[in-house]
Design a protein around this nucleic acid. Structure first.
Length: 206
DNA sequence: TCTAAGATGGGT
DNA sequence: CCCATCTTAGAA
């Protein structure tokens, strides 16, 4: 049994910060929990990316408000989950105040709690270092699907908890897979724990 | 209605 | 390198 009292759920104020890039950096090292039908899993966030709805062409909500991106316009502290390539569920954390569509994509976590559950969800053949090393694989391991879209991170189905880690080395790089965004693809808005084996893309994109 | 493209991952 | 797989946004 896991002692949850040592993990403090982040408050709403954390998510309302108007600077989504700062939030993306701050989320690295924190813990992402899900509790699905009593199955508790958690991973340390080791890689994130920031997306800004006003002046970032890589953001789904850039200069538009559609049914899919509606939740990004909500007050910070909710999940934005969408299906990518018809196959993978990608998990984002909505930030900023209502009306300003920002979000942080969680790209990788390191398994911490419920590793056996994650292994079951991913399948026996998956090696441990591949268990949660990518935005589509961590959602499978944590059981995150589109039913989590719009769900509040202040409740007990999915949430982020403070870490008491000291001295992690945070690397910065351009974001992955957003070449369609032109110049904005070069923004240094990806953050990761330097040297962590679960980071999805290790080598730098110059 | 129709269609192209996509914030990926796993296999060859 | 190839391709699975299906929603979404935008056009017609």
């Amino acid at each position: 049994m896991v002692d949850l009292s040592s993990y403090e759920k982040l408050p709403i104020s954390f998510y309302k910060n108007p600077d989504v890039v700062t939030i993306a950096r701050q989320l690295v090292g924190k813990f992402l929990f899900t509790n699905i039908g009593g199955k508790l899993t958690a991973g340390k966030i080791v890689e994130t990316e920031a997306y800004n709805g006003r002046d970032d062409r890589a953001c789904h909500a850039f200069q538009k408000r559609t049914p899919r991106t509606e939740v990004m316009y909500a007050e910070g502290g909710r999940a934005y989950v969408y299906l990518c390539y018809g196959i993978h569920h990608l998990f984002n954390i909505v930030t900023n105040k209502e009306g300003l569509a920002d979000a942080v994509l969680v790209r990788a976590v390191e398994p911490v709690i419920g590793i056996d559950i994650m292994q079951d969800r991913r399948g026996e053949k998956v090696k441990s270092h591949k268990l949660t090393a990518g935005p589509g694989t961590l959602t499978q391991a944590l059981g995150i699907t589109r039913s989590f879209d719009k769900v509040s991170l202040l409740e007990d189905q999915i949430w982020v908890a403070e870490s008491h880690d000291e001295e992690i080395q945070i690397g910065v790089d351009r974001r992955v897979g957003v070449d369609y965004a032109g110049e904005d693809a070069k923004l240094p808005w990806r953050f990761f724990i330097e040297g962590n084996e679960f980071v999805s893309v290790k080598k730098r994109n110059p």
